[in-house]
Deep mutational scan, measured.
Amino acid sequence: KELVLALYDYQEKSPREVTMKKGDILTLLNSTNKDWWKVEVADRQGFVPAAYVKKL
């Protein structure tokens, strides 16, 4: 499975999103959308801005 690194803190703004902290390592589930990537963090799945994460 592919992992991404959170480059910035992100606070979810809708139930479809997830909160992450800078430095978090997240499991990447889907990166087909260039703006929003689906990730899993702490047993929750949701979207984060693609610009806020980097593939490892």
Rank of each mutant, 00 (worst) to 15 (best):
F47K: 03
A51N: 14
K21H: 11
L26F: 06
V53I: 08
D9P: 06
T19C: 07
Q11F: 14
L28T: 02
K22M: 08
N30V: 10
V41S: 15
K22Q: 10
A50C: 08
L29V: 14
W36Y: 08
V39M: 02
V4S: 03
T27P: 15
N33W: 07
A50E: 04
L29T: 05
S31W: 08
G46Y: 05
Y52G: 09
E17N: 05
L26V: 07
G23H: 05
M20Q: 02
V18L: 14
Y8L: 11
K38N: 08
K1Y: 14
A6L: 02
D24V: 05
V4Y: 07
M20L: 09
F47R: 03
G23S: 03
Y8S: 08
L56M: 10
T27W: 14
G46E: 01
T32G: 10
D43E: 13
K1W: 13
E12Q: 13
P15A: 14
K55P: 11
V48K: 00
S14L: 09
K54Q: 13
N33Y: 08
K21P: 01
L26E: 00
K21A: 09
L7H: 03
Y10E: 00
D43N: 14
L26S: 02
E40K: 10
Y52T: 09
K13H: 09
K34M: 11
W36V: 03
V53A: 03
E40M: 10
Q45A: 13
Y52R: 07
K21E: 07
L56F: 11
N30W: 06
E40G: 09
N33C: 11
E40R: 09
L56P: 03
V53C: 15
K55C: 11
A51F: 08
K13C: 12
D24H: 05
L7T: 05
P15Y: 09
V4F: 05
E12L: 08
L3K: 11
K38M: 15
L28N: 00
D35E: 13
L5K: 08
P15W: 08
R44T: 07
M20C: 06
V53K: 01
A50T: 06
I25G: 00
R16F: 13
K54C: 15
A42D: 13
E12A: 15
T19W: 05
T27S: 10
Y10F: 07
V41E: 05
D24A: 08
K54F: 10
D9G: 06
S31I: 06
S14F: 07
N33H: 11
G23N: 07
S31P: 07
K55L: 14
V41C: 14
Y10M: 01
K22A: 13
K55W: 08
V48S: 01
K21C: 12
W37L: 04
K54D: 09
Q11W: 13
L29Y: 03
P15I: 10
W37M: 04
W36K: 02
R16M: 13
K21V: 10
T19V: 03
L29K: 05
K22W: 04
A6S: 06
T27V: 15
A50F: 02
A42S: 13
V53Y: 01
E17D: 06
Q45K: 11
L7A: 05
S31R: 07
E17M: 06
L29M: 08
L7C: 09
Q11A: 14
K22C: 08
L26A: 08
K13A: 11
T32M: 13
D24W: 11
Q45L: 08
T19Y: 04
V4Q: 01
T19S: 15
P15N: 11
F47V: 08
E2C: 14
D24M: 14
W37D: 01
E2R: 11
N33F: 08
V41R: 15
A6K: 00
T19E: 04
D24L: 05
K1C: 15
D24E: 11
R44F: 05
K21Q: 10
L3P: 04
A50D: 02
P49N: 03
A6I: 03
K54A: 13
L5H: 04
K22L: 06
T19F: 04
P49V: 02
T32E: 15
A6T: 04
V39E: 00
Y52W: 07
L26M: 12
K1H: 13
K34L: 11
N33K: 08
E12V: 06
E12I: 06
E12G: 15
M20K: 00
K1F: 13
G23Q: 02
D24G: 04
A51R: 15
V53T: 05
V4W: 07
M20N: 00
Q11E: 15
K34P: 14
E12C: 12
E17Y: 06
Y52P: 02
E2Q: 14
T32W: 09
P15L: 10
R44A: 06
W36F: 07
V48R: 00
N30A: 10
P49C: 05
F47I: 07
V39H: 00
E17W: 03
L7Y: 04
N30K: 07
P15K: 11
L28M: 04
W36C: 07
E2S: 12
E12K: 13
V41G: 14
K54E: 15
K38S: 07
N30H: 07
K38V: 15
Y10L: 01
I25L: 09
P49M: 03
E17C: 07
G46V: 04
V48L: 02
K13S: 10
P15C: 10
V4R: 02
V39P: 00
V48F: 02
K34A: 13
W36N: 02
K13E: 08
A51C: 15
Y8D: 08
L5A: 06
P49R: 03
D35N: 14
K34R: 12
K1T: 12
V41K: 15
Q11S: 12
K55T: 08
I25W: 06
A51D: 12
Y8N: 09
Q11N: 14
T27M: 13
Y10K: 00
V48I: 09
W37Y: 08
A42M: 14
T27Y: 11
V39S: 00
A51Y: 09
L7N: 03
D9F: 04
L56W: 09
E40Q: 15
D43L: 08
K1M: 12
W36H: 03
R16A: 12
P15F: 09
K38H: 11
R16Y: 13
K38L: 15
V39C: 04
L28G: 01
A42F: 15
T27G: 11
L3A: 06
L7K: 05
V4L: 10
Q45P: 06
L28Y: 02
K13F: 05
Y8M: 13
R16G: 14
L28S: 02
M20W: 00
N30P: 04
G46S: 02
Y10D: 00
N30D: 15
F47H: 05
I25F: 06
K55G: 06
L3N: 06
Y52Q: 07
K34G: 10
A42P: 14
E12R: 12
L29P: 00
L5V: 15
R44Y: 05
I25Y: 06
K22T: 07
A42N: 14
L56S: 04
P49L: 04
E40D: 07
Q45G: 07
W37C: 04
L29S: 03
L7V: 07
E40H: 07
E2A: 11
W36D: 01
L56Q: 05
Q11V: 14
K13R: 14
D43S: 11
V53F: 06
D9M: 04
S31Y: 08
I25A: 03
L29H: 06
W36T: 02
V48C: 04
D9N: 08
A50G: 06
T19M: 04
D43F: 09
S14E: 08
G46K: 02
Y8Q: 14
K22Y: 05
G23V: 01
F47G: 01
K34F: 08
V4C: 13
S14H: 12
K55M: 10
T32V: 10
M20I: 14
S14G: 13
A42W: 11
V18W: 04
I25R: 05
K1S: 10
T19P: 07
Y52V: 08
G23R: 02
L26G: 10
L28C: 09
W37G: 00
V18I: 15
